Deep mutational scan, measured.
Amino acid sequence: LQAFIKTLTGKTFTVEMEPSDTIENLKAKIQDKEGIPPDQQRLIFAGKQLEDGRTLSDYNIQKESTLHLVL
């Protein structure tokens, strides 16, 4: 599935991932794409901060969901 990552500066980019991917995997993909170390990334979806060990499906993240990236 493709999801949108929106930063506080208003920049939006897309990442490809599977519902079974962990938040940790997602942070690694963001690092590959944007060069931001995972330990500096905080991802917010539906008002909740996402925990590394959980999966996208745990948070009911669907295709074309928008996640907010806070540094």
Results as ranks from 00 to 15, higher is better:
Leu1Lys: 06
Leu1Gly: 06
Leu1Val: 11
Leu1Met: 10
Gln2Leu: 15
Gln2Val: 15
Gln2Tyr: 13
Ala3Val: 15
Ala3Ile: 15
Phe4Cys: 10
Ile5Glu: 02
Lys6Cys: 11
Lys6Asp: 04
Lys6Met: 11
Lys6Asn: 07
Thr7Tyr: 14
Thr7Trp: 06
Thr7Met: 15
Leu8Ala: 14
Leu8Glu: 15
Thr9Asn: 13
Thr9Gln: 13
Thr9Tyr: 14
Thr9Ile: 07
Lys11Ala: 08
Thr12Gly: 06
Thr12Cys: 10
Phe13Thr: 02
Phe13Pro: 00
Thr14Asn: 05
Thr14Gln: 09
Val15His: 01
Val15Pro: 00
Val15Asn: 00
Glu16Phe: 13
Met17Ile: 14
Met17Tyr: 15
Glu18Leu: 15
Glu18Ala: 12
Glu18Ser: 14
Pro19Asn: 09
Pro19Thr: 08
Pro19Met: 13
Ser20Cys: 07
Ser20Pro: 03
Ser20His: 13
Ser20Leu: 09
Ser20Asp: 13
Asp21Ala: 09
Ile23Asn: 00
Ile23Ser: 01
Glu24Thr: 08
Glu24Met: 13
Glu24Ser: 13
Asn25Val: 13
Asn25Met: 15
Asn25His: 13
Asn25Leu: 13
Leu26Pro: 00
Leu26His: 01
Leu26Ser: 00
Leu26Met: 06
Leu26Thr: 01
Lys27Pro: 00
Lys27Val: 01
Lys27Gly: 00
Ala28Ser: 10
Lys29Met: 08
Lys29Ile: 10
Lys29Phe: 06
Lys29Tyr: 07
Lys29Thr: 04
Lys29Gly: 02
Ile30Val: 04
Ile30Ser: 00
Ile30Leu: 04
Gln31Ala: 14
Asp32Glu: 15
Asp32Val: 13
Asp32Tyr: 09
Asp32Pro: 01
Lys33Thr: 09
Lys33Asn: 05
Lys33Tyr: 08
Lys33Phe: 09
Glu34Asn: 09
Glu34Ala: 13
Gly35Tyr: 02
Gly35Asn: 06
Ile36Leu: 05
Pro37Val: 05
Pro37His: 11
Pro37Met: 05
Pro38Ile: 15
Pro38Trp: 10
Pro38Asp: 03
Pro38Ser: 13
Asp39Met: 10
Asp39Cys: 11
Gln40Arg: 11
Gln40Asp: 08
Gln41Met: 13
Gln41Asp: 01
Arg42Gln: 11
Arg42Leu: 14
Arg42Gly: 05
Arg42Phe: 12
Leu43Tyr: 04
Leu43Asn: 00
Leu43Ile: 12
Leu43Trp: 02
Leu43Ser: 00
Leu43Arg: 00
Ile44His: 11
Ile44Asn: 05
Ile44Thr: 10
Ile44Ser: 10
Phe45Asp: 01
Phe45Lys: 04
Ala46Met: 14
Ala46Asp: 14
Ala46Val: 06
Ala46Asn: 15
Ala46Ile: 06
Ala46Tyr: 10
Lys48Leu: 12
Lys48Pro: 02
Gln49Phe: 13
Gln49Pro: 11
Gln49Arg: 09
Gln49Glu: 15
Leu50Ala: 03
Leu50Met: 10
Glu51Trp: 04
Glu51Cys: 08
Glu51Asp: 08
Glu51Thr: 05
Glu51Gln: 10
Asp52Cys: 05
Asp52Pro: 07
Asp52Ile: 05
Asp52Gln: 05
Asp52Gly: 07
Gly53Trp: 14
Gly53Phe: 11
Arg54Tyr: 12
Arg54Lys: 14
Thr55Lys: 12
Leu56Ala: 04
Leu56Lys: 01
Leu56Trp: 05
Leu56Arg: 00
Leu56His: 01
Leu56Ser: 02
Leu56Ile: 12
Leu56Asp: 00
Ser57Val: 07
Ser57Thr: 08
Ser57Met: 11
Asp58Ile: 01
Asn60Ser: 07
Asn60Asp: 09
Ile61Arg: 03
Ile61Glu: 05
Ile61Tyr: 07
Gln62Gly: 14
Gln62Thr: 15
Gln62Met: 12
Gln62Ala: 12
Gln62His: 10
Gln62Asp: 13
Lys63Trp: 12
Lys63Phe: 11
Lys63Asp: 15
Glu64Ala: 10
Glu64Gly: 15
Glu64Tyr: 14
Glu64Arg: 07
Ser65His: 10
Ser65Phe: 13
Ser65Glu: 09
Thr66Val: 15
Thr66Leu: 12
Leu67Ser: 01
Leu67Arg: 01
His68Gln: 10
His68Ile: 15
His68Asn: 08
Leu69His: 00
Val70Cys: 08
Leu71Ser: 08
Leu71Asp: 07
